[in-house]
Write a protein that binds this DNA or RNA. Structure first.
Length: 439
DNA sequence: GCATGATCATGC
DNA sequence: GCATGATCATGC
């Protein structure tokens, strides 16, 4: 071992695990910086991690990577499925099976178990367009096979050994076994080895864990993470936790944020709204809580000067319903009395949108009074057929009504006045500015 | 520069 | 198929 002080205790699995977790949600390049460029060798991410992160030379020893800790390090890729779920990208490959030796031992003295009894699993998200050193690590954990899984793996191992003993190593197939497979390993299918009980050359194979088995590990790890989030709730408020999700992105451009999240920004006008949902974790625990609490998510775009170009739109006015409603049971009342969560972006000199801050807000009582007058006025005009005479932004009463439809021909039926253009409730831009400057 | 009308991609 | 969140485009 090189003679400099390691940032972890190589005799302790938990110390190694703790150190390895500094890579969580980061890429190798982000963690070790420019050193990565000075690396001359070529290799897969796993080898780079060994050499540049753990500071040991990759080897092919029969012992685990950290012999004193009895710990084997395994890096493995994840992929994102179309539905947004995360799954294993490929099987996890272990040591090559030495047909000439392996059958001489029992399972508990097998090369597989001696080397892989305790694993440090490091799952990263594989993304086609990125290079190895830019993949983000998503799951890092110590892993020991649960007892009942180990029994199946023992049976799997037994099946592999049976074939070797029967002189049929060349007939080994991954379909023989359940969790532990014997997968081809070599430059190509013609990488062959001798076997002890037959003259036939057998394809070189290594032990491997099947993708499906990894998915089980992955899923339970992600569930663990959700459980930890719940643990956190005991100590912090829901609002604090949400805000903390955004703080790492403060000062970052939407381009940087989406890159970090491995999310491609849409072409929609609501693109930063969609990006914001991504930060919240669309599939995660929190968006669920967010939705349960019926929080109104709104994004705000500030110009470089801090002014707002646009007012804030709300759902359309249902002309046939508003005339039947009282203020307190109106759709509008329901909208404005929600808890709001504002995500505020601001343009910089280069016209990039930068995340400035986030904030929770509820409408103060005096504004609800104003909103009530606005709604009463709107309802009266719908009743009277004054569809072009709603409260305007120039009335300077915090709210106004404006068109909102697919186009000018997008109409909606009314009780007495035929089809009318679809229109919505809006917060005046000046009102939004007042809200966000208060905090 | 701003009010107002018009429109668009997305997701359910 | 259509509402939604949001921004674009025009004209004064």
């Amino acid at each position: 071992m090189v003679n400099h002080k390691l940032p972890y205790d190589q005799t302790s699995a938990t110390s190694i695990e703790a150190y390895s977790k500094t890579l969580l949600n980061q890429s190798l390049r982000e963690v070790i910086g420019e050193k990565v460029n000075s690396y001359q060798g070529k290799g897969k991410l796993g080898q780079l991690i060994e050499e540049l992160f753990f500071y040991y030379k990759p080897n092919s020893n029969a012992a685990p990577d950290f012999p004193e800790a009895g710990l084997e390090v395994k890096t493995s890729p994840l992929k994102k499925l179309k539905n947004g779920d995360i799954a294993s990208k490929e099987r996890l490959v272990f040591n090559i099976i030495n047909y000439q030796e392996e059958y001489k031992n029992d399972f508990y003295h097998s090369s597989f178990l001696l080397k892989n009894q305790l694993l440090l699993l490091m799952f990263f998200l594989h993304e086609k367009e990125k290079s190895d050193i830019d993949y983000t690590f998503k799951i890092i954990k110590l892993f020991k096979f649960p007892e009942k899984d180990l029994l199946i793996i023992k049976q799997d191992w037994g099946k592999i050994i049976e074939k070797i003993k029967a002189g049929k190593a060349h007939e080994l197939s991954e379909g023989d076994t359940l969790y532990l497979g014997a997968c081809p390993k070599g430059a190509n299918r013609n990488t062959l080895r001798t076997q002890p009980f037959s003259e036939v050359m057998a394809m070189q194979r290594a032990y491997s864990l099947k993708s499906k088995y990894l998915n089980y590990i992955i899923k339970s790890s992600l569930d663990d993470a959700a459980v930890k989030d719940v643990e956190v709730l005991r100590h912090k408020t829901f609002e604090d936790i949400i805000i903390e999700k955004f703080i790492p992105f403060y000062g970052k451009s939407i381009k940087e944020i989406s890159f970090k999240l491995n999310y491609s920004i849409s072409e929609a006008k609501s693109s930063i709204y969609l990006l914001t949902k991504e930060i919240l974790g669309v599939k995660g625990k929190f968006i669920e809580e967010f939705e349960k609490a019926d929080i109104q998510l709104k994004t705000v775009r500030l110009e470089t000067t801090g002014s707002l170009k646009e007012s804030m739109s709300f759902p359309q006015i249902q002309y046939q319903e508003i005339i039947l409603e009282d203020f307190l049971d109106s759709a509008w009342y329901e909208m404005i009395t929600k808890k709001f969560f504002f995500v505020i972006f601001q343009k910089n000199e280069k016209a990039e949108l930068i995340l400035k801050k986030v904030m929770f807000w509820t409408m103060p009582y005096e504004d609800i009074k104003i909103a009530e007058e606005f709604w009463m006025d709107t309802k009266a005009k719908v009743l009277n057929g004054e569809f072009d005479n709603f409260q305007r932004i120039t009335d300077n009463r915090k709210f106004h009504v404006r068109p909102k439809g697919a186009n000018a021909q997008d109409l909606m039926p009314t009780e007495k006045y035929g089809l009318q253009k679809k229109k919505s409730y809006w917060f005046n831009a000046s009102y939004v500015k007042e809200i966000i400057n208060k905090q």
